[in-house]
Design a protein around this nucleic acid. Structure first.
Lengths: 347, 347
DNA sequence: TTGAAAGCGGTACCAG
DNA sequence: CTGGTACCGCTTTCAA
């Protein structure tokens, strides 16, 4: 803006390295990308110049020119709550091994639609995209499909994936846990989830709803009467919602003898509330969670829950993405990594 | 590769929109960036063309041309363990409001040095960079300094930050909790951390070491004798390490009456192990954690711990970054967001 | 094995 | 208010 402004950013460009090494820019490029095509002696001179100048290739320019960004976009609702953290970690690991980077987009349940998020991500011209949502607006689907890049939907198994999917059946998971509770002798089984989203939010917890649906289906199958569902509004922590949720559940259906919670955090709150009220767990009330969070296995809690392969989902998504990018045929477009009922003390 | 290869990616380019709207490319650019400078009628025509063609501006090209990427790199060790997840969330939120995106880099304790990670990140020409490490190699520091972009180190308060820092004093936190235990009448205080890193790993848990140092300093100040430290190797989950760590601690120093753990997960493991052994908590043994994880406050556990402003750290880092990018003067280069001792049942 | 030239898809700058 | 033109830093293609 004026003459005392800080010096403009100045990066060492490939041209500078070339000049220093007494070669042309393209030769520097070759040293970096196809070293075998450059005479050893020349290469060493260039490498020395790179070192001396501290040259870091500009991937923005490189991406534009080569039409390959080596960038993969991940779109999730939030990192907090630790549901997706392991998946992102797994993805990052797999991608780093192939020298690809991660572009992270979070919605935070903001009113910004997934559509806007997808557009923003595609603007970076990623080589692939990973979504934790299996439900999209028509416009979003269209953008994704026409982008011409591999798309992986994770954490669910959509019937009609945009492209590929890696996850497990949330519906079956809900069913399985409900059956497990039934097998343990329970007949009046409730469900506590963390309820509706704020106005304007996106699909929110579609996976949670699928599990709830599984619970409902199992109740019907087993002829256990109408569902007993409490959905706590978005206030306070998940643990607090679990505590409040159990209170509400018992108020409405005092004879409930088991609760399936939408996550381990919610379940922890429910267990706490039960203890507070002197309700014996699992004696009088069985409690089950979902996710097998770090704390679930701790003795003193021993939460019965559903273990899901979060890290593996990310790793597999990365593998699929890279395979497709290389043009390798991907036969299984939908990868079911399953889940596992972990039976502990509370149910 | 061959004639049956999939059609090459073809994006709608600005030129296409321009042609459809009967204007020049630069006018399309103006409609997108400075709409006020375009006549309403023209603008509407262009906007219609954008809609019709589903045009998504290429930010790669835009970044190269404008020398502004609107990308911020975050370099962390891992997302799992939920230590940094909230910080990344906070950062993402702040940045999204300013239409900036996040480039995520994780080390996963791999042998890839932070140096390599920094170079990779800088190659994307980010407008700023956030690091969860306050210790860097000379080369890394040099790269960061010469990049000419704002740099924020988070989760610690380095004496000599590369540029800016947002966090709290881990050393003081360690000291404060030790003093708290002392104030509660404890005199034989131990420390359980999750120990040494695998060979080739980076700085690992420098912050943990700082807390350990604070513990040591407090012991000396209070004249509580030599430190009793157990560092569990990297095997199994944090919770398991906590359980094993407590066992080791009690084996070496059976009369220990308090333990400060490097994280709430470790503390949870310690509490579990204590219960398993019939050791009364906090009667015979006080246990304190660090982090105030989601499960810490659950009744039935009531873990005494240190609460740290993870989300706020990310948000503030984002704010500083954006302010500096805008050229606004940033007076406080080091922002101490503090910590808080949360006194609950276990100590 | 090396280089020259022509873009990649936008934006800055200067005219009109 | 709109357009022409150069150019961002690298890679592709074609020649030598």
């Amino acid at each position: 803006m004026n003459d005392t402004a800080p010096p403009p950013r100045r990066w060492v460009a490939m041209q500078d390295v070339a000049a220093a090494a007494g070669v042309s820019a393209i030769t520097v490029s070759r040293v970096l990308r196809t070293p075998a095509k450059v005479r050893v002696e020349t290469r060493q001179r260039v490498e020395a110049a790179i070192q001396a100048l501290g040259y870091v290739p500009d991937r923005v320019a490189g991406s534009l020119s080569s039409r390959e960004s080596r960038l993969v976009a991940v779109l999730i609702s939030t990192l907090a709550g630790s549901i997706f953290a392991t998946t992102v970690d797994g993805l990052a690991q797999t991608l780093r091994a192939a020298d690809h980077q991660l572009l992270l987009g979070t919605t935070e349940y903001s009113s910004a639609s997934e559509e806007a998020l997808v557009a923003t991500a595609l603007g970076r011209r990623p080589d692939g995209i990973v979504l934790t949502s299996g439900e999209h607006t028509a416009a979003a689907r269209a953008m994704l499909a026409s982008a011409g890049i591999p798309v992986v939907e994770v954490w669910e198994l959509p019937e009609d994936p945009v492209d590929m999917a890696v996850g497990f059946s949330n519906l079956e998971a809900g069913q399985a846990m409900t059956r497990h509770l039934h097998a343990g002798g329970r007949r009046r089984i409730g469900f506590v989830g963390s309820g509706r989203l704020p106005v304007g939010a996106g699909d929110g917890d579609r996976r949670g709803r699928l599990r709830l649906q599984g619970y409902g289906a199992a109740l019907a199958d087993l002829d256990l009467g109408p569902p007993r569902v409490v959905r706590e509004p978005f206030e306070g922590s998940m643990v607090e919602r679990g505590a409040r949720g159990l209170a509400t559940l018992l108020e409405r259906w005092p004879d409930t003898d088991a609760v399936f919670c939408s996550s381990d955090s919610v379940a922890l709150g429910a267990v706490s509330e039960a203890r507070r009220r002197g309700i014996e767990v699992p004696g009088r009330l069985a409690i089950a969670g979902f996710g097998d969070f770090e704390f679930a296995g701790a003795s003193g809690l021993g939460l019965t829950t559903v273990r899901v392969p979060g890290h593996a989902i990310g790793a597999e998504a990365g593998r699929l993405l890279l395979a497709r990018k290389r043009g390798e045929p991907v036969d299984t477009r939908i990868v079911d990594l399953g889940f596992e009922i972990v039976r502990r003390a509370t149910a």
